[in-house]
Amino acid sequence: MKETKEVWMQKTVVVWLGALLCCALWGSAFPCIKIGYQLFEIGAKDVATQILFAGARFFLAGVLAILFGSVLNKKPLLPRKGAIGRIVWLSFLQTVLQYLFFYIGLAHTSGVKASIIEGVNVFIAILVASLIFHQEKLTARKMIGCVIGFAGVVLVNVNGSGMDAGISFFGEGFIFLSTVAYAFSSVFLKRYSKEDNPVMLSGYQFVTGGIIMMLCGFGMGGTLTHVTPAGIAMLLYLALVSAVAYSLWGVLLKYNPISKVAVFGFMNPVFGVILSAILLNEAGTIGAMCLVALVLVCVGIYIVNKGERRK
């Protein structure tokens, strides 16, 4: 049964559909977070409350992931004693470090530059998996596919505004560090999934990381004072996005090379632009450049996955 599931999860159509679903959900988070800020009346520069908001989102995401996993396994999804340390380490990398660096960095740079730097996480994940942990081989085909996909990320974000030559450690530097934390979390999630259920790991690391982020937000002076039913509904949706997408992403990483899955991360900003145009009435952001970017990202994903299929 285990072998059948492993073979099924390695099928190209399953990887493509599963990874694209994750990226579509993550892409929807970009405009929905903005809507959430509006509903909770969180200011653009109120980093403390943004971190508090993110912590609440991830705590709820963890609870949902644990509930879903328990239903699917037909028994409570509980961590083994040996998994506690792995959960804490994952939550530190994936939730706490990544998002603390991201939110603080975003307050000191433009959204365009942040999105482009975030696109580097695919390169870093593949390099870390190949050169440091030796989980797979680094090939010219993988790097070519990544370069083409990254070109799409740059195109979809460059719209004549938000770009300049200025670089700051607390701005662009922190955004880059968030990508490094994400890359290492992907590698460790794949490694830990050999011994533990990836949905269990996702759920408990979100709960742990969410609590830490809420405490950080409170400690920095953050407060959620304007609470409405619409705001709570949006918070629950964002929690659902994280619970479903990260759990599914973890399952895909468990059964496939990191490069084969991570390369789909280039689709996040593409989905983000398209869904922002729909949900935030930013129709002007979709044009010929966006379509070219989508083509480049798809070509990059195809090249990387074609190499994996041949092997």
Rank of each mutant, 00 (worst) to 15 (best):
K142P: 01
M143Y: 01
M143L: 15
M143V: 15
M143D: 01
M143W: 02
M143S: 05
I144P: 05
I144L: 14
G145T: 03
C146R: 07
C146W: 07
I148P: 10
G149R: 06
F150D: 01
F150K: 04
G152N: 09
G152H: 08
V153W: 01
V154T: 10
V154D: 03
L155T: 05
L155D: 04
V156K: 02
V156S: 03
V156A: 07
V156M: 06
N157V: 03
V158A: 12
N159R: 15
G160V: 14
G160K: 15
S161E: 12
S161W: 12
G162N: 04
I167D: 08
I167M: 14
S168C: 03
F169K: 10
G171D: 03
G171F: 04
G171H: 04
G171I: 04
G173D: 02
I175W: 00
F176Q: 01
F176G: 00
L177W: 05
S178G: 04
S178V: 01
S178R: 01
T179S: 06
V180Y: 00
V180Q: 00
V180S: 00
V180M: 02
A181Y: 00
A181F: 00
A181D: 00
Y182C: 06
Y182K: 02
A183T: 01
F184E: 00
S185N: 08
S185V: 04
S185D: 05
S185A: 14
V187Q: 00
V187T: 02
F188V: 10
R191P: 14
S193Y: 06
K194R: 15
E195W: 09
D196Q: 10
D196M: 09
N197C: 11
N197I: 09
P198G: 05
P198N: 06
P198E: 03
M200E: 08
M200H: 04
M200A: 05
M200Y: 03
L201Q: 03
L201H: 01
L201W: 02
L201V: 05
G203F: 03
G203H: 03
Y204K: 11
Q205K: 11
Q205R: 10
F206E: 10
F206P: 15
V207G: 08
V207C: 13
T208D: 11
G209V: 11
I211Y: 12
I212N: 08
I212P: 07
M213E: 12
M214W: 04
C216E: 08
C216I: 13
G217I: 05
G217T: 07
G217N: 08
G217A: 09
F218C: 10
M220A: 14
G221A: 10
G222W: 00
T223Q: 13
T225P: 15
T225I: 13
V227F: 09
V227R: 09
V227S: 12
T228C: 15
T228Y: 11
P229I: 08
P229W: 08
P229A: 07
A230R: 14
A230Q: 12
G231S: 10
I232W: 05
I232R: 06
I232F: 07
I232Q: 06
A233E: 12
A233C: 13
M234S: 13
M234F: 15
L235R: 13
L236N: 12
Y237F: 15
Y237G: 11
Y237V: 13
Y237E: 09
L238S: 03
L238T: 02
A239T: 06
L240N: 09
L240D: 05
V241W: 02
